[in-house]
Write a protein that binds this DNA or RNA. Structure first.
Lengths: 125, 125
DNA sequence: TCCATAGTTCGCAACATACGAACTTATGAA
DNA sequence: TTCATAAGTTCGTATGTTGCGAACTATGGA
């Protein structure tokens, strides 16, 4: 079992970030991590939106996010705590992650402003 | 030969956009189209940054961009004119494309601010 | 018509992904 | 220590995706 590897922020690439987040499962995981207060374990995502993800697949997804530089994972006893590297990436690629997260929110309809009197494409931003 | 198909803006997805732009060749093509005044033909990209792209590969890349909703292509005589659908996408996913393009620019070192008085994190990437 | 140019499609090899099975690591109980 | 359990990882394989040369289609001109 090789140890967890995290790229330094210098080695994080735009292509890597986009590719990692172009998968709907990974995008969902990342979005949840991004808006979570505390770190999340992997197994918190075994069931997502009425869908079951196999453990092995989930492991690969976390590795993809980790190797893209999007999250940081550390072993904590028997489980793993995952946190986003938002701040670092924001510094390197300002505005990139917020824009992607917001786009995902818009697409999934989470960003409806609760009241839409004139349907004027009012989004979260 | 099937006719060119363009998804309606409603069917454009974030995942599709991210996946399309996660390829460095496509990202470069898109960036060039985005900052071009006039529409570009496909063959304008047969040679990019000291690298030759086969015609068939280029065709696939353009199809990928088209089907992701990123560009619009129309036959113009013997060639094809490609333009970005920036405005539509900006309306649907505000800020997404500018952020991605800027991130690519930062990564490729194109976005050095011309003056960097304190050498503040000004690395090529 | 024939020819040249600009792109597309086909076919195959190489690479990537999903997932069950088997494995490693950590923790607690006997 | 040994067994059991839980959380993740790695392996093997079936299935998808991608890159590219060869053959094809469509348009315009002589």
């Amino acid at each position: 079992m090789r140890p967890l590897t995290h790229p330094s922020i210098e080695h994080v690439t735009v292509e890597g970030i986009l590719h990692a987040l172009s998968d709907p499962v990974r995008a969902t995981i990342y979005a949840q991590l991004a808006c979570a207060d505390a770190a999340n374990s992997c197994s918190a995502f075994l069931q997502m939106e009425d869908r079951c993800i196999p453990k092995s697949t989930l492991s690969q997804h976390f590795r993809a996010l980790r190797e893209a530089g999007l999250i940081r994972s550390e072993r904590r006893g028997v489980e793993m705590l995952n946190t986003t590297r938002c701040a670092e990436i924001e510094q390197r690629f300002p505005g990139l992650l917020p824009a992607i997260l917001q786009a995902h929110a818009i697409q999934s309809g989470q960003s409806k402003p609760a009241k839409r009197k004139s349907a004027a494409r009012s989004r979260v931003g």
